[in-house]
Each structure stands twice: as structure tokens, then as C-alpha cells.
Design a protein around this nucleic acid. Sequence first.
DNA 1: TGATAGATCGGCT
DNA 2: GCCGATCTATCAG
Length: 196
Amino acid sequence: MKPEIEHILKLDSLAAAPLLLGCYLIRQTPAGRLKLKIVETEAYHQDDPASHSFRGLTPRTAPMFQAGGRLYVYFTYGMHYCLNIVTGPAGVGEGVLLRAAEPVDGIEQMKANRQVNDIRNLANGPGKLAQALGIFDTSLSGKILNKSSILLENGKDIAASDIVASPRIGITKATEQPWRFYVRRSPFVSKIRYNN
DNA sequence: TGATAGATCGGCT
DNA sequence: GCCGATCTATCAG
């Protein structure tokens, strides 16, 4: 049985990241409700050279150092926004990057946000996931989950045998750590070549 | 104050 | 498979 969301958010990012698989990510917009099932996450923590929080608290990373349950949104490569769920206690800089999700509701609106038609291509990457949700700036960073337009809902338990741990994507430090988690055989994960 | 790498993506070869 | 887009945070000097 999967723990309640509130409990997951209090855990450290490494424990929370696999538990967030299968949970539902929801965004309320004036045009409707967008809903996706999380199928790929990555954990980032304070003693992790690949983490934005590794070099300490800055205006950008401040939300990571708050108590679990906040959002952390950052802008990268001059073009993309990425969405993280902050976990753990206040004072520790950690979070879980949401890398990919399976569209459930509001698919037409997500297609419009992304300007693509293939459902598998709506949120199979962190930049794509943010774009599908209509996140085009960092104004949600630091906001509290379920008290902003972003909600998190519990989902079905994913069997441990269906959760795969692998090295994280797109980093150059701590590349050996298997802190990326995804749902085995899901067609909605990013970089699908390892997916079995 | 300048250089560069970056938790990415899409287009082209 | 490689490369350019395009902006920011961080580090070197």
C-alpha cells in the first residue's frame, strides 16, 4: 500500500522519488483540468554534486531548502523549464525532478501547449512535461502543492518489481548513482531505449 | 568582467 | 548521432 502523499513529501528525496511513481499530477487552468500519471523521476539531494542545492541556498534554489510539499521550477539551456517536487525537512536542500508522465485528462489542451499530436510525446521529458502543463515561467517555484494550481494525488501502488533504478540523465557529476526511477515498460518515459 | 557549462529538445545528417 | 538555440548561475581571473 502506497503511503499518503503528505508522508511521501516528508521523506528524503531518494526515498520519495520511487514512491511518487504512479501518483497523479494535476494542474487546474481556466481552460480545464490537466492530469498525468508520473512515470519517471530523479532524486537530487544536498550532498549531491549534480544537484542545484549542492552549492548552498541561493534565490533560485531557496524552495529546495524549504519543507517538503513545495514546487521548485527552474529554467535551463536558455529554453526549458523543469518541475520538481521539494521533499524532506526544512533546511535541507533536496527535491525530486519530474521527468516524464502519462497523460490522463486534458489531453487536447496539452497537445495545444506542446504543439504536437502524439500522446507519447506530450510529457516524455522534464522540459516537455512542464510545457504540457502550461508552465512557461518560474512563477510557480516556491508555491505550495495543493494550495496552488498544481495538485498531487495518490495513485495505485506500483509493484517494486516494476520500478527500475538507473543512472540519471543529462548530468556530468555523480553519474554513477542510480537515482533515476521509472515504471518498467511504460511507453511514456524519456530516453526509452533502456525501458524494459 | 568574461567564459562556460548546464537536471533539454528538436531538427538535420 | 550530432549540433544549435538561448539565457542564467557560477567560477576564474
